[in-house]
Design a protein around this nucleic acid. Sequence first.
DNA 1: AGCACGCCGACT
DNA 2: GTCGGCGTGCTC
Length: 809
Amino acid sequence: MPELAQVVVDVPTMQTNQPYTYQIPPTLEKQIQVGVRVIVPFGNGRRTVQGFVVGINQETKYEGKLKPIQAIMDLQPVISSELMELSKWLADSTYSFWISCLYTMLPNLLKAKTTRIIRIIDEVDEHVAFDIFHGKDELEMTDVQDNPTILSELLKLQKAGKIAIEYQVEDRAHAKTVTGIHPQLNFEQLEDERISLHSNAHAQNRLISYLQSLNGQTVKFKEAQRITGLKPATFNQGQKKGWLEKVPIEVYRQPLDMQGTPDDQHLAAPLTLNADQEAAVNKINHAIDDHASQVFLLQGVTGSGKTEVYLQSIANALRQGKTALMLVPEISLTPQIVNRVRRRFGSKVAVLHSSLSNGERYDEWRRIERGEAQVVVGARSAIFAPLKNIGLIVLDEEHESSYKQDESPRYHAREVAKWRGKYNHAPVVLGSATPSLESRARAVKNVYHLLRLPHRVNQQILPPINIVDMRDEVKKHGESNFSQVLLGELADRLQKGEQSILMLNRRGFSSFMMCRDCGAVLKCPNCDISLTLHMDTRTMKCHYCGHEEPIPHECPNCHSRQIRYYGTGTEKVEQELHQLLPGARIIRMDVDTTRRKGMHAKLLRQFGHHQADILLGTQMIAKGLDFPNVTLVGVLNADTGLGLPDFRASERTFDLLSQVSGRTGRANKQGKVIIQTYNPDHYAIQDAKEHNYEKFFKQEMMLRRQAGYPPYYYTVRLMASHPEEAKAAGAMAKIYEQLKNGLSSSTIILGPTPRAIARMKRRYYYQIVIKYKKDPYLHQLLFDILQNTQSRGFKDVQVSIDQDPQYFM
DNA sequence: AGCACGCCGACT
DNA sequence: GTCGGCGTGCTC
């Protein structure tokens, strides 16, 4: 019996979400392995697609004739056996396609581009040759596919055999190369060449000496020019005379911020640990040494030196000959933290940012895959880094919601980390000053091992927090984003030459246009939400679909000219600040000023060098920053997130206030925090003021218990969308019937209801939230529901399932 | 996804 | 009669 390949093809639909069996042609027999990418014929016609070999065996249930694999794209598997296992688990636990999970684990460049090319194979008339093919003999399908007239014409020609459609699967993954030069002659031969030189050919003479000094090595052309000072023309002469040859040298793309990485001779030494840190490191190191897949929850107040604990534990994993993975939320993946890891571990470190180009990302991935990097630092998707023999996984700021991917596959990096920890028999460290309720509850139940760092390393007390009641403030001093107290403190810092950080909480908050006469709010034509004013581009933008339109001068509803904008953006605050404190130098950080590559780092560097007095920003400045000269943190509007219809609203507010408070008093100077709010008595704000996580945890747990939310219940969210509201609602109603009949009696079904943002990108959304403690039928039932989605009655309906959603909106 | 097959109304 | 609209089903 011949070996057969089981292939998962790149056709992400429910019906094709399974391996297909292919013959292995004799020429590929030796190269085919599980985890390589292949090109296979799929469907009628000459269509070819990319796929992954997920198994090699002799089994097939398929009765028809098996097709052969057309080509193999990798010499080595790009999916290891660990990641293969993981991909199956991921698809199952997130209700997503296997193929999507495989791609999620790889750099984008490994997703092949498929193109359809239309080629003339027989005489066609002039109209076709010039008007459609523009005189050429081939055409890309993408150029014509949305022109029905041309398309039908081409279809006829295809039937007549005049043109043919060819499929090309193109691998986009290419190693970057630079030109290198390689001596073609040995020392003596070069010496002979020297003799035949003209006496004034000094440059060529020097080139010969240089080539001799290379001893047969290949060097980069640029490098050779730099060292010899010779012109490219001289080298070209040498090439013509056969002394040297130009060859491509494979190099890794160097991200901007990688340049200037310390060399491995001058790495930073570990810092001295305090007793708490040492106890934590010891526990973690024991687990590493014992190959124990224990989960630790490292709960340490801001400034308590969690990072040092991570670094020393990572160092221990490396000493054991193992690798380590450290995850950081994208928002705090700042140069500060990356540089700290690089200074400690030098060239062993690979970094996976979202701001890397596809090529850079591919190169970092290959460095890891080849074992050249043993420490990986990155955001969410770095959890799939192709490290082998993992000894430790760290998730910093484990409570961050950005660890959950909000599109399919909707995985949580924390859960993947635990899976890989188990597979590799390695501990997982979850670190946070404000752990998620889920994690902390597990620590209480001893599922996780709790490690605490209750003190700041510099013995600084946590900064005192003042709450300013903005209701009084507005009564006494009128509308302003700045209370008298905050202004006074800011002026005081300016005078002392100290720095301040101001945070504008943008959650659930933005500048919108409203008509003062009829009250109409300018809304997105595609989505059900108001448009946000962007002064920099002078446009109104939709934050959901990207729709953009000019700022209106009159109300589109009643044509009144009394249309004004409301709300507060960072720009408006900056303007107000310039008026109130004319001398202050301000750096504004928000999505608009940091969109350009490298701007984030640049602005922080400027602030670090004290080129500004005030750093004004959104949530992105709340985490991870460490500036010793900052002695004041102000939160302009603490409570805008509290009103959101989301059971985690209080937790997020508490986290945010705690995190941002930690940005001050980090060095020797005492810091201070001022929080402005319209809800001064809310427990999330009061507990943050007291730096009292325990109190907040107890209170919030009680409320979650009463309302039946996580961590007391698991939740799943189902969503259905359709361009017509009734169709979306109807689909959800059908799903509701299936659920009601199939689930156990203790399970609670909420809905169906329209989503808080009921319309987005021209589609209407309906949702159901299921709350359950234990339901043996649920998992299978949800898969059945997805399967039923294929039937009539669900035409054009998109259904998605989100296990443990982060947001209910 | 992409394509063929097949069943209905509108035209050469 | 046939062309082409879209609903349905299949891809190893």
